[in-house]
Amino acid sequence: MSLYQLVYYSRNAIAGDASVFEAEVDAILAASRRNNEAAGITGALLFNAGVFAQVLEGPLAAVEATFERIQQDERHGDVSLLALEPIAQRSFSNWAMGFVGHSAENAQRFAAIGLTRGFDPARLGGHKMHAILRDLTLEEEAAAA
């Protein structure tokens, strides 16, 4: 079964203060972990107050179904598909879902590459985004080990 990778970013449409946002992100992550594990999807979710960026990896049908569910979610909009392509192997095989964006180190990193609130991730392009997500995820993994 061939594996596919899909990368997108979207504008965060969650209205409310930081606690609402945190609660929603928690809910998104909980639902993602549950659904994606069952569907054989791995990947990473990156976000800040303005943007969600996500990598989904898995069998094509599962990637499509997951992306379709994400597309129907009202909590974000202006979804831009940065990449959709077959891959030889997963880049995010160890994680059901990577969570980045909370640690101070990441916050610094966001600032360093202009990924603060209101950044323009379109400039990064699919591969760059992927690479950044991958680096971030591996770092998180290392930190957690």
């Binding site: 596919y4 899909l6 094509l60 990637v63 499509e64 992306f67 379709e68 597309q71 129907q72 009202e74 909009g77 979804v79 831009s80 598909l81 959709l84 077959p86």
Partner: peptide, 17 residues
């Protein structure tokens, strides 16, 4: 407005965007 937004979002169909 929701219908316009939602239907206009990208679809992924059999590997096609």
């Amino acid at each position: 407005a929701r219908l316009v937004d939602l239907i206009g979002r990208t679809y992924v169909l059999s590997g096609h965007t």
